[in-house]
Amino acid sequence: MEQKEIIRIEGLTKRFSGKNGEVVALENIDLSVNEGEIFGIIGLSGAGKSTLVRCINLLERPTAGRVFVNGQELSSLSDKELRLARRGIGMIFQQFNLLMQSTALDNICFPLLLAGVNKKEAEKRALELLEIVGLSDKKNAYPAQLSGGQKQRIAIARALANEPKVLLCDEATSALDPTTTRSILSLLKEINERLGITIIVITHEMRVVEEICSRVAILDASHVVELGSVQEIFRKPKTAAARRLLFPGKENGAAVGIGERLLRIVFDGMTPFEPVIANMVLACGAPVNIMFANTRAIEGKTVGQMIVQLPESEEAVSRIEAYLNTQNITFEEVKEDVL
């Protein structure tokens, strides 16, 4: 399938002048997002991801660099043209940002009325959108009467009202509990598949990226340090920042085997999990200590990773490595600080 680019960011730099001199939020970012994909931008807090997403619809003006959305260079537009272009870019937020004094229905009508649609048409469209997000029965409720998940659904409906090509999600699930997060993510996925809207997801949670993104950029200290398919980055994280995001449970299991050699084994969904380790132990006649293991679903495939503590004997280690090679299993030796 020919991939068409919908967002291109070139040499984007953003500096803020604060009380303590200048702060660099983003430096020389190059990024491109294809039409119809769900693209993740992940990083720890302070990495600059919220600034980056705001540079996409120019809520923040870049200090340098260019931003293209839908073939239009946003940074070159006049205020009026920019307002028009923004209608093609929906956005949802961590704190939902609904009009608190308006009903759910009026909140969804709001962007339509801004765009000059008449009240009757707007309400008709808003009712359809309420249907899509599954909250038709809440049309007359005020935000204060809704749960967090319901508020985000209304916000999603509102963001979709003007039929945008792109939807920006700024930590959209960070204020929600895990169950609600999953339901919002599956709604986003459904919207992506049904309406073909390109979605940019900003998050600090790896599980969000794993659940819905096809590609991901890792942002660390104002730079994109890694970029690729989620599977690729999951299998072979190249940077410390990526590893930090992959192993959030650093405290667990660190007590045993500090300073010992560790091996990270990745299961890519082709080979089943348990027999490999059991067979490896049997075939090599050497025990291993399992330090960390988890499985996740990435784009429908179950993938897993396991960190094992290797036996002391060098010879046993080389036997294990040889065995894994014959089984075509990805592995790498890792330092103890990943745990």
Binding site: M91, F93, Q95
Partner: peptide
């Protein structure tokens, strides 16, 4: 809430 104003700006 500044967030609501930002949301309105994001809608043009």
């Amino acid at each position: 809430d500044a967030g609501v104003i930002e949301a309105a700006q994001s809608m043009g």
